[in-house]
Design a protein around this nucleic acid. Sequence first.
DNA 1: ATCAATCTTGACGTTTACGTCAATGTAACT
DNA 2: AGTTACATTGACGTAAACGTCAAGATTGAT
Lengths: 139, 139
Amino acid sequence: MRDTIDCGATQFSIRELCDAFEVTPRTLRFYESQELLSPRREGARRVYSLRDRARLRLILRGKRFGFSLAEIRELLDLYDMGDGQLLQLEKTLTSAYEKRDQLEAKRRDLNAAIEDFDQQIRVIERMLAEKKSDFSTAV
Amino acid sequence: MRDTIDCGATQFSIRELCDAFEVTPRTLRFYESQELLSPRREGARRVYSLRDRARLRLILRGKRFGFSLAEIRELLDLYDMGDGQLLQLEKTLTSAYEKRDQLEAKRRDLNAAIEDFDQQIRVIERMLAEKKSDFSTAV
DNA sequence: ATCAATCTTGACGTTTACGTCAATGTAACT
DNA sequence: AGTTACATTGACGTAAACGTCAAGATTGAT
């Protein structure tokens, strides 16, 4: 929300976007070569729109979840294709449901991981407590 | 739980483990070279224990979340080091809390992503509904 | 006008996480 | 004893996702 709306300008140079998201120009150009971004040009220079900025957010978020750039592109495509014909829309929706299932699965997986890890933490906490009482009784 | 406990045997050949987790022998050998696994040997052959099996589960789960093998090793180390001295235990616990925070952050991130995506899905659903009513009124 | 800073496009290098042989060893049938 | 089947260790190859230079083009400041 902050990133999408509250970012002052409505156009960004490559450097501004890089600074904002802590990536390098090379990264943005690479994403463009992979057709994840498509900034317009002013002369030769790239000019990124709010939409580009929003897409970049999604890209980086996807990466944090371990999605490949190819998978991320599929996701981005789903965000775009709000136009198209009826049949196209239905296809989009079907893919969207599938993607959503993927995300859900990841969430369940993550929740399980956190539970396991918490349990492990409690084991260590207990050991620490025991060691401390050992120490106090030894004194 | 199923994988950890209910897997019949208590020792596994490389092939059994590969089949169980759908990875290749090369992968297991690579993990071993990175010191993520350390099966004992019978002659030259690798023999994996239940502990190895559990670690492999954690490795693959970590990968699904986009952790690098290096990061995963840190996590595994935390699971191991239940021994060690008092000071060591406290350090372990501190690292464990940090890792837990990382996982929490990832969970928040994922929840946000799912919410965003659901919203996008609803947009498409609405468009589809409109298009359909357009069609029916057009007839 | 010029000089430094910043952008551009190649092109090649690098890291991670394995894949893919090749050569060899060994266990288990037959 | 011979063959089939799978295991082991190198060693080299590869795809993804950039990093890193090189060589020009532009643009703003002096």
